[in-house]
Simulated assay, not measured.
Amino acid sequence: MSARPFGARLAAAMDDHGPLCVGIDPHASLLRDWGLPDDADGLRTFSLRVVDALGGRVAAFKPQAAFFERHGSRGVAVLEEVIAAARAAGTLTIVDAKRGDIGSTMGAYAEAFLADGSPLAGDALTVSPYLGFGSLDPAVELAAATGRGLFVLCLTSNKEGHEVQHARTTDASGPGVGDGSTVAALMAARAAVLNAGAEPLGSVGLVVGATIGGAATATGTDLVAVNGPLLAPGVGAQGAGERELATAFGAARRAVLASSSRAVLAAGPDGLVAAADAAVSEARSALRG
Rank of each mutant, 00 (worst) to 15 (best):
A189D: 01
G134Y: 00
T105I: 03
A185I: 02
E111H: 07
L136M: 01
L155C: 06
A145H: 05
M106T: 01
V183L: 12
L92K: 11
V95D: 14
Q165R: 02
L120S: 07
L150D: 12
L125E: 14
T182S: 12
L153H: 05
G117S: 14
I94Y: 02
Q165K: 01
H162S: 15
G134M: 01
A184K: 04
A144D: 14
Q165H: 09
C154E: 12
V193H: 04
D123P: 06
S157L: 01
N195D: 14
G100N: 09
A124W: 09
G180M: 13
T169S: 11
V140A: 07
A97L: 03
A97S: 10
A172H: 15
G132L: 10
G176E: 00
G103I: 05
M106R: 02
L136V: 00
Y130C: 12
H162P: 08
C154G: 08
T170K: 06
I94A: 02
G117R: 08
R168S: 12
M106Q: 05
P129M: 10
F113V: 08
G161R: 00
H166G: 15
S181Y: 14
G100H: 09
T170V: 02
A144C: 07
E141H: 12
S181W: 12
T182E: 06
D179T: 08
V140G: 06
L142V: 07
G134R: 02
V177C: 15
V177I: 12
P175L: 07
Y130R: 05
V127T: 13
S173H: 15
